[in-house]
Amino acid sequence: FTLYPGFSEILTGGETSSVSLLYLVLSLPMLITLVVYFRYVMGFFMRNFERQADLYSAKVMGGASSIISSLEKIALFSGKSRDLPSWHHFSIGQRVDFLWRTVKEKTLLKKHNRFVLISFFVYFLSLCVLGYALNFGPVKEGMKYSILKKVLIERIKKEPDNLTIYYNLAMVSQQMGDDKEAIHYYDRIVERDHSQAGALNNLAWLLVTGTDTSPEELHRALNLARRAVELKPEPEFLDTLAEAYFVNGNREEAVRVIKRATERATGNRTYFEGQLKKFLGEE
């Protein structure tokens, strides 16, 4: 998937304010993620590491009474509520209550150490899964296209006659699986400029491969594909034309055109040969 030439210029329009807005939009998800990460993930581990330290100190000192006394004094002299927690600390009241439990539960330190270890393992595993999803899974692509689409929509409000923006919007929508919206944008292009071979071809392809395309739209797709091939007789465009002939019931023309596409193809000939078999009914 390649965006139309000049895409970066379209996004920014050469304006400093637009460039700043673009980078702000792109960085906003990362900033939100960092805030959530430190508030909840790091906060969770900091609180439990602190609790782990409290329990270990109680073990080393032979009991929790000295630590409890120190914590109560801190609460008293600080003038703050002993029951007021923060994002990275349990409240003094919570710390004291947990330490008192060591009197009855001698294995509490061991249990808490196991809890922290399991939590850290889950955290590490989640990081691996998330890292894979963001770098190799569909999440990364979805986020990228979603951001691109928002920026393009804002840009087209300023340049409603810029067909290049419409083309990129159509391509992004197509990549996101929103074929109806892609068709809408391609329609806007071909209505204004009948010489846009790429838009003609892509619109024709979406129509002939759609699941609910009417006979009238299939016939229109054939005309669009013909026009695209007249402008640019490339193998991919010929393939669209062959598919259009096929769905319109003209197998003979579909076979003739796909053979022409196969002859012109410099790569991926297997695909075109598969198309030929389909049109011949050999699959």
Rank of each mutant, 00 (worst) to 15 (best):
S86R: 05
S126G: 02
K59H: 14
F77Y: 14
K104Y: 14
K80G: 00
F49S: 12
L84V: 09
M46H: 12
S70Y: 10
R39Q: 07
T107K: 15
S126R: 07
M46F: 14
R51P: 01
Q94K: 03
K73Y: 12
M42W: 14
R47G: 01
F90N: 04
S70H: 14
F121Y: 15
L109M: 08
S86F: 11
E72T: 10
L117A: 13
G62K: 07
G63N: 06
E72G: 04
I68A: 11
W87S: 06
K110G: 11
E72N: 04
R101Y: 08
A64E: 15
L127D: 07
F121A: 15
N113S: 12
P85V: 03
L109N: 04
Q94D: 04
M46R: 15
G93I: 00
F44G: 06
K59V: 05
K110A: 13
R114L: 13
S81H: 08
F115S: 11
F77E: 12
F49L: 12
K110R: 14
F98M: 05
F121H: 13
L109T: 02
F115Y: 15
F38W: 07
S81R: 08
H89W: 13
G62V: 03
A64L: 02
S119N: 09
L117P: 12
L55R: 10
S66C: 04
S126C: 10
I92Y: 09
F45Q: 00
A53M: 08
G79L: 04
I74E: 13
M46Y: 12
V96I: 09
Y56E: 10
S69H: 11
A64I: 00
F45V: 00
R47A: 00
S119M: 09
M42F: 15
W87A: 09
S78I: 03
F90P: 03
S81L: 08
F49H: 13
F49C: 05
S91K: 02
L55C: 02
W100S: 09
R39T: 08
R39C: 01
S91Q: 01
A58T: 09
D83A: 07
L109I: 06
A53R: 12
V96S: 00
Y123M: 10
S81K: 06
M61I: 08
S66N: 09
C128A: 10
T102I: 07
D54E: 05
Y56D: 06
L109F: 15
V96K: 03
R95D: 01
V103H: 06
S65Q: 10
W100Q: 13
V41A: 02
L84A: 02
W100A: 05
M42R: 14
L108P: 07
G62Q: 05
E50Q: 10
W87K: 06
K111T: 03
F49Q: 13
Y40Q: 04
P85R: 07
L125E: 15
N113T: 14
V41F: 11
F120I: 10
G79A: 03
L99K: 01
F45I: 08
I74N: 07
S78V: 01
R101T: 08
K59F: 13
S66F: 10
S81E: 00
